[in-house]
């Protein structure tokens, strides 16, 4: 555990909680892509199946349980409790175009051709692109609520901090996981355009809106 890994995890946790609180307090999931949230629930479920097979630490186990629990709670709020506020017409990204290639890639490129390892690999690849339906929705509507941009910033920052963590671990622990690193770079790059808008607009007190 190093400072980048810990702040990355906390940034990830902050993102998840910001989103849950936003939906709960406003009693609305307007502007939130339910499809991205379903993808994140699949990501956590397929990655954390090792909860059943191996124990790493109390920290590790409790964070995994919290992430999974919050992911399903978010999906429940969007598709059940506040379903009436869900903007399905704008959430029109075709997720099969992500899930199918990512599934194929996980079967072809993995560390070990075993059930749990392929699911772990699938979750790493899927996470790297799971935000696309959300970004697509924002580009379609041309705007995002400020609280939604805070969520996206924390979520993007988390993987960027993990990149620093992997550099640290490479130098100080000789740890190197090519699959996680490549997927992590892809994931972080997808947020770059958003980071630019966040810093130049939201942090200066303006609403995030895209030119028509």
């Amino acid at each position: 555990m190093n400072v980048f890994r810990l702040t990355g995890d906390l940034s990830h946790l902050a993102a998840i909680i910001i989103l849950l609180l936003k939906i709960w307090k406003s009693r609305s999931c307007a502007g939130i892509s339910g499809k991205s949230q379903i993808l994140f629930a699949i990501v956590f479920t397929t990655r954390y199946l090792d909860l059943l097979t191996s124990f790493i630490s109390i920290y590790n186990t409790s964070m995994k349980v919290i992430y999974i629990g919050c992911a399903y709670a978010t999906v429940y709020l969007i598709y059940m409790k506040f379903r009436a506020t869900y903007d399905g017409n704008h959430d029109s990204f075709r997720v099969e175009f992500l899930v199918v290639p990512v599934g194929g890639l996980a079967v072809l490129v993995n560390h070990d051709f075993s059930f749990l390892e392929i699911l772990w690999t699938f979750s790493i690849y899927l996470e790297s692109v799971a935000i696309l339906p959300q970004l697509f929705m924002i580009s379609k509507t041309g705007e995002a609520e400020t609280i939604t941009t805070h969520y996206l910033f924390c979520l993007g920052l988390y993987r960027a901090l993990y990149l620093l963590n992997w550099i640290w671990r490479f130098y100080f622990e000789s740890f190197f996981d090519m699959i996680a690193i490549v997927a992590g770079v892809v994931q972080t790059v997808l947020y770059c355009d958003f980071f630019y808008l966040y810093i130049t607009k939201v942090l200066k007190g303006k609403k995030l809106s895209l030119p028509a």
């Binding site: 990830h12 995994k64 992430y67 560390h111 070990d112 963590n165 000789s174 740890f175 996981d177």
Partner: peptide, 10 residues
Amino acid sequence: EYNIYEHDEL
């Protein structure tokens, strides 16, 4: 040495 199949990251 780390066993890469024991994924200790989240």
